[in-house]
Write a protein that binds this DNA or RNA. Sequence first.
DNA 1: CTGAAAGCGCTTACAG
DNA 2: CTGAAAGCGCTTACAG
Lengths: 341, 341
Amino acid sequence: MKRPTIADIAREAGVSKGAVSYALNGRPGVSPATRERILEVAGRLNFHADSNARALAGAKARVVGLTLQRPPSTLGVEPFFMELISGLELELSRQSYALLLQMASGRDEELAFYRRWFAEGRVDGVLVCDVRTGDPRVAALEELGVPAIVIGPPDASGGLPCVWSDDAQSMVEAVEYLAALGHRRIARVGGIAEFAHTAIRTAAFTEVAARLGLTETTTIPADYSGESGARATRRLLSTPDRPTAIIYDNDIMAVAGLTVAHELGISVPGQLSIIAWDDSPVCRLLHPPLTALTRDIGAYGVRAAHLLLAAIAGEPVASTHGAPAHLSPRGSTARLQPTTA
Amino acid sequence: MKRPTIADIAREAGVSKGAVSYALNGRPGVSPATRERILEVAGRLNFHADSNARALAGAKARVVGLTLQRPPSTLGVEPFFMELISGLELELSRQSYALLLQMASGRDEELAFYRRWFAEGRVDGVLVCDVRTGDPRVAALEELGVPAIVIGPPDASGGLPCVWSDDAQSMVEAVEYLAALGHRRIARVGGIAEFAHTAIRTAAFTEVAARLGLTETTTIPADYSGESGARATRRLLSTPDRPTAIIYDNDIMAVAGLTVAHELGISVPGQLSIIAWDDSPVCRLLHPPLTALTRDIGAYGVRAAHLLLAAIAGEPVASTHGAPAHLSPRGSTARLQPTTA
DNA sequence: CTGAAAGCGCTTACAG
DNA sequence: CTGAAAGCGCTTACAG
């Protein structure tokens, strides 16, 4: 009842171990008849090649690694990572790859895991999330010369291929939409300022606002948590010339913002319009449902996995852009009421 | 610049490869002085033992596996799994174990992954979530005789050790609390009926209601999605003798329920009290904030990982109970107003 | 306490 | 097209 090995199959099929290996891996070197016999025996014995032996003998480990910052608060809330992982695995499974997932408490620890994984021969490649400009992980992975894909904007990806979409374009769409509804005082509650995509959104926000002649725009930095979103919203809504529209860099801060508005007796969307960046089921469940910037995060995952597997296979790999987040207008945004302006 | 091997260390330290292995693994067989010299060299060369070679030679792979149902909708929303994984890894990392995560589309596929992982020597043990009564995965893992821990109630764990808490006790606490507030018509929107813990909650709900003389209790089965929660809530609130309190089996359905109540002009908590089972940041952000049954999910993870590693080490392992979910009263529950009763 | 050797289960040149 | 053999980097009895 021990696990069958290629030696068992070779004996059973009356061939050498080498022939079994060639047959199982779809390589030339065995006649069609022999190959079929070998595959039949392997199937009958329910054979699965030992992954460790395979990797040790020079084949791939068939594992890729992903590290995430351990949730101070928001990781569990935002659907981003679960959707991303779901997409990643869709593609990885297709090629019999597995995903090693590791929570880390900081970038240094993430980097240490990456180094160790490669040193131990555990992974064939890795994915990098939440990149910052000048991210040390990018530089280190480039230097190691290992297969790695960045899930983030090209600006911070150095020489590594990346998968991302044009956040600037989505930001422009959101601001122009609000402006078309008559809003002139538009504020933004941003994500963690060090993340490269946050900087891109901030720049785009400032730029489009200037182009549209909106002078009273503010971005308040926050950290994706509900508390930070609530605090920023209170600050914004307590100013004399308070904004009539706020764009939030994630859904949880937008939910918090909606509640703060209720708390202050400011009606949404009557006196305040709200947009959440990254849609989630919760956005649709609230009253009013939140207008959101929606994107197919799972598709990023599929694409990132695809690129990584190509890189591991030694194929040339180029960064790709996914479809940008698009506006899903719902009840939380409306034409500015002249009386309250 | 190749990765250093124990042969390199042996040469550098002037000892045999065997001695290096013993020294690195903290085994007897080398003198303290030799051991120290070996460790010094290993550290200097930044040595990390090849994981595949180690596993192939009979040591542990130092990997455990976890499969989750691919998110039809709710996986990304509920913080449960991210918190669980976070807890798991806290303990796994302490012992230099890694986590293999795999999304599956059903129990059959989950089971196939488990089988393959063991056949390929990829994992030393696995964790099982979302168990049903008579779950085939439990029976299969028992038959395989591999280290496995169930994260779920003992009723469905068969001979496998499990980590869970007393859901019945928490249900009793919630219902008694509502009864103490004067509620007599209490309803419940349940989770997926096939899950073992759902059955336990349903039984406890029925039992405590009977004990308290509450005759008009209903449980409507749902699937954790916001849509199903909204639908169930509409049904409940459209009956002539509508409930004055509803307990939801997850937070997302509770959010949906709150919105439906608003939509129907039923005030919360004035005319309807709401309790969510499993707390989340969103619960605290709503208006009113949701009363919830709170538990330390990360602690489950730590405990489950601890048990699994013990089982892998060949130690005897017994199921353990974590602290039950406790009531966190917030704004969504209140004394029943006599006028609206 | 230490060294030399076998073996884990594969893959891959290398001869036939 | 096929077989016999070396080797991947460890661990672990087994002699000294």
